[in-house]
Each structure stands twice: as C-alpha cells, then as structure tokens.
Computed example of a mutant assay.
Amino acid sequence: MRIAIAADHNGVRLKARLTAWLTAHGHEVTDRGSHSETEIVDYPPLCADVSRRVGDGRADAGIIVGGSGQGEVIACNKIRGVRAGLGHTSFMVEISRGNNDANVLVLGTKVITDDEAERLLALWLATPFKGGVHARRVDQITALEA
C-alpha cells in the first residue's frame, strides 16, 4: 500500500517509528514532513498535503500525527475525497475503517503511547470496510462535497 505520512513537531518521533513499522511491513511510505521536534510547525499545510495525495490517488492512505489529533482531523476532512478518522482507541479505529471507510488515520501523541499508536495503526490497516448500509452512508458523505 502507498501511504503518505506527516507530523507536526509533536509527532516527529512517533512518525519515524510508524514509518519504520510500515516499511518493515511492506508498505511504500512517503514522508511529507516535518522533521524537527524543536521547530514549531503548523499542522494544516501538512494535513492538506497528505490529504490531497490521498484524494487524488497518489497515495492509498494517509497517516497524520499531531499532539491531540483533533485539529488535524478537522483539517484533513476539508479536502475532497478524504474521510479522516481520529484513532485514540480500538473502537474508534474499527469504526473509522469498518463503518466510514476512512482513508486517513489521525493519531495524537499527547493522547496515546507510541506502543498504542503502532497497535492502532496495525488494526486500522487490517480492518476492512463493511459496505452494505455503511456504503450508502459513505456515499451520502461524499455527496456533501458536491
């Protein structure tokens, strides 16, 4: 799978760990920044960059790492074709993929541990979209973009 990943200054360390994990599991990862824990970076441009790559097909999925992830999920969902889900718990991850066919996962380093983030990422990647009634709802969400 082609995955675009980005993080603000809060998530640089975790982004590096997740990039290594993804690569070790056979994914093609494109790191879109940032690369410094000391330089304060605004997350909206990073979210837009990753989300546009997902939206236009240059990436199959996106991963964003921020402090809480809350602002990041809002920013990602402004981009056409993106359904970003906030992944703080197994339940949230399973719903975002299974019910909402999320194509961007947002993680918050101030909310979950690095080990939890890795486990949640693996769960997100392994969870299939259920389709059925959920496909109808995803189609309705997509129609909101028109």
Score class of each variant (00 low, 15 high):
Leu22His: 13
Thr23Pro: 15
Thr23Asp: 15
Ala24Gly: 12
Gly26Asn: 11
Gly26Lys: 02
Gly26Val: 02
His27Gln: 11
His27Lys: 02
His27Arg: 06
His27Ile: 06
Thr30Arg: 08
Thr30Ala: 04
Thr30Glu: 00
Thr30Gly: 03
Gly33Trp: 02
Ser34Arg: 04
Ser34His: 08
Ser34Gln: 04
Ser36Ile: 06
Ser36Trp: 03
Ser36Asn: 11
Ser36Phe: 04
Glu37Val: 03
Glu37Gly: 10
Thr38Trp: 12
Ile40Lys: 15
Tyr43Phe: 14
Tyr43Trp: 07
Leu46Pro: 09
Val50Gln: 02
Ser51Pro: 07
Arg58Ser: 11
Arg58Met: 01
Arg58Asn: 02
Arg58Thr: 06
Ala59Arg: 06
Asp60Ile: 08
Ala61Gln: 03
Gly62Tyr: 07
Ile63Trp: 10
Ile64Glu: 03
Ile64Ser: 13
Ile64Tyr: 10
Val65Thr: 00
Val65Pro: 13
Gly66Leu: 07
Ser68Lys: 10
Ser68Glu: 12
Gln70Leu: 15
Gln70His: 13
Gly71Trp: 01
Gly71Lys: 04
Gly71Phe: 01
Val73Asn: 12
Ile74Arg: 05
Ile74Gln: 05
Ala75Glu: 06
Ala75Phe: 12
Cys76Pro: 15
Asn77Pro: 07
Lys78Ala: 06
Lys78Trp: 00
Ile79Gly: 15
Arg80Lys: 06
Arg80Met: 02
Gly81Tyr: 07
Gly81Phe: 03
Val82Leu: 07
Val82Lys: 05
Arg83Cys: 03
Arg83Ile: 02
Ala84Met: 10
Ala84Lys: 11
Gly85Arg: 09
Gly85Asn: 03
Leu86Trp: 04
Gly87Ile: 12
His88Gln: 01
Thr89Tyr: 06
Thr89Ala: 09
Ser90Ala: 13
Ser90Thr: 01
Val93Thr: 09
Val93Tyr: 14
Glu94Phe: 02
Glu94Tyr: 11
Ile95Phe: 02
Ile95Gln: 12
Ile95Arg: 14
Ile95Val: 13
Ser96Cys: 03
Arg97Asn: 06
Arg97His: 08
Gly98Tyr: 01
Asn99Met: 10
Asn100Ser: 06
Asp101Lys: 13
Ala102Pro: 14
Asn103Lys: 11
Val104Arg: 02
Leu105Ala: 09
Val106His: 05
Gly108Ser: 11
Gly108Pro: 11
Val111Trp: 13
Thr113Leu: 05
Thr113Asp: 01
Asp115Gly: 07
Asp115Thr: 15
